[in-house]
Amino acid sequence: MSEIAIETRNLTRRFGRVLAVDDLNLAVETGQVYGFLGPNGAGKTTTIRMLLNLVRPTHGEVFIYGEPVARNHGVLKRVGAQVEDATFYAFLSGRRNLEVLARISGVDVDGRIDALLAQAGLAERARDRVGTYSTGMRQRLGLAATLLTDPDLLLLDEPTSGMDPAGMASVRDFIKSLPAQGKTVFLSSHLLSEVEQVCDRVAIINRGRVVAEGPVSALLEQGGLSSLLIEAAPVETARAALAAWSPVDAAERPGWLYLAGAADDAPAVTQRLVEAGVAVHQVVRQRQTLEAFFLSVTGEGVVVEGAGGDAPGA
């Protein structure tokens, strides 16, 4: 059985009358990339701050590698974290910022700093003041700072915020490579497609409580929302032929029909259309996205995706 990297027990935080985090119980195993999702104000950042002992819980406890964080600050040496946006001393250079953080951490990392700066693509700007960096550059410097002590556990809050697409892709690849090195990642992100691509398991919180938790693949299969998108002509004949599946017009796609929950029926649907003399141009099995699932469990409504699918059915 894997070691538990993060465990929260009945974690609760109240700010006056506002219950920011309510009885949160999480267990993140080592070697996982764990996604942590929730709408704005759901309690994500408060939770991350409690994990790092930046905020004391009103009730409950946080354990990192089995050690209670509130009573054993030393266990945070195994953690690298970036909370919210990457902030630095704007009057110091990128390199000097990392040197300062290394000294505060009490580790000798002089040789490592150059390597991290190069990895972050900041080698040429290392001696410039951070005040002159773009948002994306600061984010990359934030990731370098997170890795400064070669931590076992990384807590990343919106790590690709402000990055260009190439930067985002390289960060995603980098995160995916971490479990192979025995590292655990706790990733909070608003970019659900990003989470879907890199996480093994996710927890979705809303109003301070976990509303869904589990492996990404299992969550996406929940609710039976997997669907078929069909392009056929004439569309009215197709609609009549598929009456058993209650087809509806696909939003933003004239001439297409949407069959909710029919992803596994692609062969039968295609056969029925052919028998009805309908010209079938495309049948697309549409997998539910994490975004659709997220919106459904957080009460924000269900999105019917009009594009993209994992495999054509016929």
Binding site: R49, L52, N53, L54, H73, L76, V79, A81, V83, E84, T87, F88, Y89, A90, L101, I104, S105, G106, A145
Partner: peptide, 17 residues
Amino acid sequence: QWRTWKNIVPRRPRVQL
């Protein structure tokens, strides 16, 4: 003011800082 406290507090106990 610079919001750098969250970078340093996890790295050392507050008393030492």
